[in-house]
Design a protein around this nucleic acid. Structure first.
Lengths: 202, 202
DNA sequence: TGGAAAAATGAACAGTGTTCATTTTCTTTG
DNA sequence: CAAAGAAAATGAACACTGTTCATTTTTCCA
């Protein structure tokens, strides 16, 4: 092993170390309450060192953004064993919703947080595109099976995604409190049921 | 006019002055990029003065939060002239969506921004409750007219709200970029159409 | 007009993201 | 193995943040 390759490996390990620390603190305290000094302290390095591995705080954010999509896609794995397209779509919705519930902060990071998305980096959205492509494929399969007649896949997928996202976003940002007598999880579950009822008739 | 009442009026005027400045800067730069010093500078006062009229930055935020709901409710005014309940519901959806499009930052402030909603202040949500009650009433009217049979108004209203919110939230936080070839406004319009189609069959 | 009350100030505190001259550590070469 | 050169890590410094509070200024009324 040449020195150069070892150096590169060490560099990658350091990036991972920073990412792991960042993730745990991000998810503990949220984006804005996490500081570079916090992260550095957690891994026993000085603040300046972080900047040798990441250009800025947002670059750490984007790395975690990707990680989130990797996790979501991993959760979708079992879907390939669901043969009926519409059942697959429903299962997909449940997985998406459970992901939001069990990884509130990752979900927030991926779909809600205000972060400079203006970055023209195409690889920044690679994982996100993959996930969206999954949805579109399932919808196409449903269409092949006779559902959603005459619907454009682009618009339909946006509608399906945003319906799910609406509930998850209200959940993540505590707007379910608008129903003080109602458990947020129950709201989500029943909301999803109505949504499925809807899709069945579309 | 007693001195005391004048004092009180002047105090209210000062609060308004601060709120107006805050609003314009909030909407320009977003919540986190707006600083107390910015606000003070804009109205030619010192930073400390702000704290004589508002306990903290979040109190300013909440005041604007309320203002947003007042505006939204004002937009809903014409609905009272739409006699058919389902038409009223559709019009309501369009108004809600247009509000989000035309007041992106107000919408963000009201429904998306992470702000300490844990505040147990009940008056903080008074306006929001009113708006939600509007929706529930329209849905009840629809039900009285034979639609949405057997649906619980609480869950149904959450579903309707979150479907609309989903699109608006993706729009406000620039996640429509997931469809690079598609205009965000077109996505919203078509998404809304599918939603209405859905409701018609429910 | 003088003294009390109210209003406004701005320096100070503890925090933030980021930069960079300096020091430390590692690697290669003579 | 020692010295020179490169790479890595440091932490002080800069300009910013929300918030507090002793001090100063202004306003008011007897």
């Amino acid at each position: 092993m040449t020195v150069a390759t070892r150096k590169q490996r060490e560099r990658e390990e350091m990036r991972q170390l920073i990412l792991e620390a960042s993730r745990s603190i991000f998810l503990e305290k949220g984006y804005h309450l996490t500081s570079i000094r916090n992260i550095a302290e957690r891994i026993d390095y000085s603040p300046g060192t972080i900047y040798l591995y990441f250009k800025e705080k947002d670059e750490i954010f984007h790395a975690l953004h990707e990680e989130g999509f990797r996790r979501l896609i991993a959760q979708m794995e079992p879907l390939q064993f669901v043969s009926d397209p519409f059942e697959r779509l429903k299962a997909m919705g449940r997985i998406y919703m459970d992901f939001a519930r069990n990884n509130k902060d990752f979900y927030d990071l991926m779909f809600i947080m205000q972060a400079p998305m203006n970055v023209e980096a195409p690889e920044c959205w690679e994982m996100g595109d993959t996930a969206l492509e999954h949805l579109k494929n399932v919808l196409r399969d449903c269409q092949a099976a006779g559902r959603f007649k005459g619907q454009d896949i682009e618009f339909l997928s946006f509608y399906v995604w945003s319906s799910m996202h609406g509930m998850c976003a209200l959940y993540c940002r505590d707007r379910c409190q608008a129903y003080p007598d109602m458990d947020a999880d129950l709201l989500m579950t029943r909301g999803f049921e109505i949504f499925v009822q809807n899709l069945e008739k579309l």
